[in-house]
Simulated scan of single mutants.
Amino acid sequence: MNTTTLPAPARAVVEETKRLPLAALGALAVIGFVLVAMETMPAGLLPAIAAEMGTSEGTVGLFVSAYALGTVLITIPAITLTRGMRRKPLLLGGILGLVLANTTTALSNDVTLSLVSRFVAGAFSGVIWGMLAAYGRKISQPSRAGLSLAIVSVGAPVGFALGTPLGSWLGTTFDWRWAFAGLTAVAVIAGVFISVIAPDAEGQPGPSRLPLLRVFRIPGIAVVLAVIFTWMLAHNTIYTYIAPYLRTTGSTLTADVELFTFGISSIAGIIITGALLDRHPRPLLHGSVALFIAAAVVLLVGHTLLPAVIAGTVLWGATFGGAAAQLQAALTTTGGADSDVANSFLPVAFNLAIFGAGILGAALLTNFGALALAVVMIVAGLAALMLTIYGRRAAFPARL
């Protein structure tokens, strides 16, 4: 495209867009897909893994818990200790560790070894998550920070949409080990691609590094983390137990179709976020959480009507799909020079929400029934909305 005839401001925008490292950002998004799919995939393979390894499905369910525990325990100290390192070698090292741990799981015949390998995989996953958003932003132009974050974040909803169903299909059609091997192959290809085409970025200089607790005390950081936890809790409580909810509706909608619909709608949410995040991050966040609550109301009030359930699911996905990009953008901007450490808090808060949602959802199903899941989605969503309003100045800037 010839830009010489355009006005100077328009020419600058076109040139910046052309220089955006789309291929590298796309490869980072693929890694995001691998991280989410790797965490959730065992849920669709419980019977196959349990039968072959001669153990119970409950024990195999700990594959997910071990992964989450590795993320929670290792992410923050690992990112704190490595924040002075150059970003690209650290990312490639994290991918290599993830590949080796996942390959061990794919080959293991021992439950204990498998649980240890899942813990290690979760640890490397947390390191990658802790730096992925900031790295994508560092290799992009400052004026396109929101778009770069949206591109990097697109892998997560695709992982949620396809990770568990695809793993279940591979495990049923071939063998459950092929599902893990497939993710290893994708990670290797993406890692090679990143090593060849992704720019490097410097770590944080020593004199500018704040101690861990001081990073946490940066005005706005705690509020962003509280929004992450409450919003993720609102989402994961019903997402984890979507099958019992659908049984309560009496509809013919199956869990895999429901989750696929949610995932596709999430991708639409990422596109919307990418278009608006650079210019209107605060209104976008307020609107996303508010419409997320509206989706929960539809899922509760209209649960006996199939069109209402589908509409609520589409709205749910569209409003939640951009959550990761929006909250990572807030942490990155608020964290400033310490954005890598600030972002390391995100997977911890996210996985704590997953853990809490599993316990809360199980208790609600036992004592109140599946419709209580939608009630939690509303109540926790309202709490998240109030937190975004409370922290609108310190935590959620008007511009990135």
Rank of each mutant, 00 (worst) to 15 (best):
T3G: 03
A8I: 15
A10Q: 14
A10Y: 10
K18V: 14
A24C: 07
L25E: 04
G32H: 09
A37Q: 06
M41S: 08
G44Q: 13
A50N: 06
A51M: 11
E57W: 04
E57F: 06
V64F: 05
L69R: 01
G70Q: 01
V72E: 10
P77T: 06
T80Y: 11
T80K: 06
T82S: 12
M85R: 15
M85N: 12
L90M: 14
L91P: 00
L92A: 06
L107D: 14
A121Q: 06
F124H: 11
M131F: 05
A133T: 07
I139E: 11
L149C: 01
L149P: 07
V158N: 13
G159C: 08
F160G: 03
S168H: 12
S168K: 12
S168M: 14
T172K: 12
T173N: 05
D175M: 04
W176E: 09
A181E: 08
L183V: 05
A187C: 12
V188Y: 04
E202L: 08
R214S: 13
I221F: 08
A222I: 05
V224N: 07
A226Y: 01
I228D: 09
L233H: 02
Y239M: 05
Y239L: 02
S251D: 07
L259I: 15
T261K: 01
S265C: 09
A268C: 13
V301Q: 01
L305N: 14
A308G: 01
W316I: 08
G317F: 04
T319E: 05
F320W: 12
A325S: 14
A325I: 07
T332Q: 12
D340E: 14
F345N: 13
G358M: 05
L373T: 00
I378W: 06
G381I: 06
Y390N: 02
R393Q: 14
A394K: 15
F396W: 03
